[in-house]
Write a protein that binds this DNA or RNA. Structure first.
Lengths: 269, 269
DNA sequence: GCAAATTTGTTCGTATGTATT
DNA sequence: CAATACATACGAACAAATTTG
């Protein structure tokens, strides 16, 4: 007996799940039933379920039972669109367009505005001294009613004082902030750097995205620093996305349009 | 009593870890000691430790004890370098150069070659019929002796038959395969598409990267499809990276060199 | 090299609490 | 309110891995 019993039970259940014998969304036998099926104690059965839970194959709902996890339909965001004339992928109106093109329904929360002083990391990425006044613009995005990302953009208060008053006003800026800054101040975005990391969700994120509180589902954190014609950072945009429902594409150089997007094709059954 | 006891114990230990009272690498009290400290049963203490484990704050070693997790120094790969003249970031010699620039020691395993027929996903991404003969080139990469990524590139056998014999030969191609294909066949890479996903590691990966077998640490999977001047895919390169030690940068448009790389600066203490 | 001691891993049984139907 | 199902907690015993004497 090389492997512990709870792993064997987990393996058996896993095969049933992956073979389709236990369909997504369907309920597993209760702990008491499994206890009899496998001739094990209830605690051992629970250990097996805990293992499957950590692999995201099942989820338990107190008072109801244990269910096979429903696969999410991932959304693929192209983060490399149009560096010069407009926004990079995933931002503002491009988000709406991209989602609609995939025959899914996008939603934006109204933008919330906040004032803050630059701290260590934010200051470093924006290349401003610590304590510099910043305008923060928060936004939340949904697809088909499910939360998909949270975004915060940081602008130096300087821009507002020079005339870009709308940055400090709550609500969306119709033409997009990049276009707005060009119109009002003549500041042109000529490129950006995306820095991608993966980390565990914090409490706020776990709550908003309805993730299990033990941090099983990780978050992408994308730091986008956008530069103007003088190669000076004009904004920092930080977006977090749960990894269980998001994927990214970057097109570098000359590439044809994707004629085949495996993840996007999967329609919910 | 709103919160269960095991969570309270976990919270208490967490604070000790985050405050530095329990330093990285140091050993926690044993389960029996904790049982007395908190006046709980051993199983409850174990539940608390399991919770911290799932948050990657501690790791247990059978026969030894429980230890505070040592933070990894992440490596940042720039995936958007030089689409025209050479390789994208993270490939071949660029990997060696990038790692050396960060004052760390890179290592490449010798390339292993394998023949295979294209299956569903591979065929779709390379835009060839299923069953098409492919040459696979496998490589593993290390930094400071620690495994950081595994890579497999897929080339249509067609290229070999047209004269690129070295593709089918094990071992590294000095000038890089992109340059090699240009020299031998005049095939020029003009761009590529990187498709980024995050998923749980499989058994091979968990073993190679020494990840916990319960899938806590996720993997990036990057699909790079490279295109030639006719906008036809010339290769598919699939790289997997553990998320706990890797980050990525994409530069889009005109951007200044990073003068500040927080993650890269952290030297091991 | 072996035996003992230490420490975590697995399994059982049992009792009680909490959420949902 | 009652029944059902998962969640928490305790106690106990033995197994397996590692270190120490």
């Amino acid at each position: 007996m090389a492997n512990p019993m709870y792993r064997q039970i987990a393996e058996d259940l896993r095969e049933q799940i992956e073979s389709g014998a236990l369909a997504p969304g369907s309920q597993l036998p209760t702990e008491l039933e499994l206890r009899e099926q496998y001739n094990a104690s209830r605690n051992t059965v629970r250990d097996a379920i805990k293992w499957l839970t950590s692999l995201d194959l099942v989820e338990t709902r107190p008072g109801q039972g244990t269910f096979v996890t429903e696969p999410r339909t991932p959304f693929v965001t192209t983060l490399s669109d149009d560096p010069l004339t407009g926004l990079g992928g995933g931002e503002g109106n491009l988000f709406l367009a991209e989602v609609s093109a995939a025959h899914r329904k996008p939603d934006n929360s109204p933008v919330q505005v906040e004032m803050q002083n630059a701290t260590g990391e934010t200051a470093a990425r924006l290349r401003v001294p610590e304590g510099t006044e910043l305008v923060l613009r928060h936004e939340r995005r949904f697809i088909d009613g499910t939360p998909y990302s949270m975004q915060t953009s940081y602008y130096p208060m300087d821009l507002v004082e020079r005339g870009a008053k709308d940055l400090q006003r709550a609500g969306n800026i119709k033409q997009g902030t990049v276009e707005y800054l060009r119109e009002v101040l003549g500041i042109k975005q000529v490129g950006y750097r995306d820095w991608i990391t993966v980390r565990a969700p914090n409490a706020t994120e776990a709550d908003f995205f309805k993730l299990p509180s033990d941090g099983r589902v990780a978050m992408y954190e994308v730091f986008r620093t956008a530069f103007d014609g003088n190669q000076v950072p004009m904004r920092l945009t930080v977006t977090v996305y749960p990894t269980d429902r998001n994927q990214f594409i970057f097109n570098i150089g000359t590439v044809p349009p994707p004629h085949n997007a495996p993840a996007q094709e999967d329609e919910p059954t």
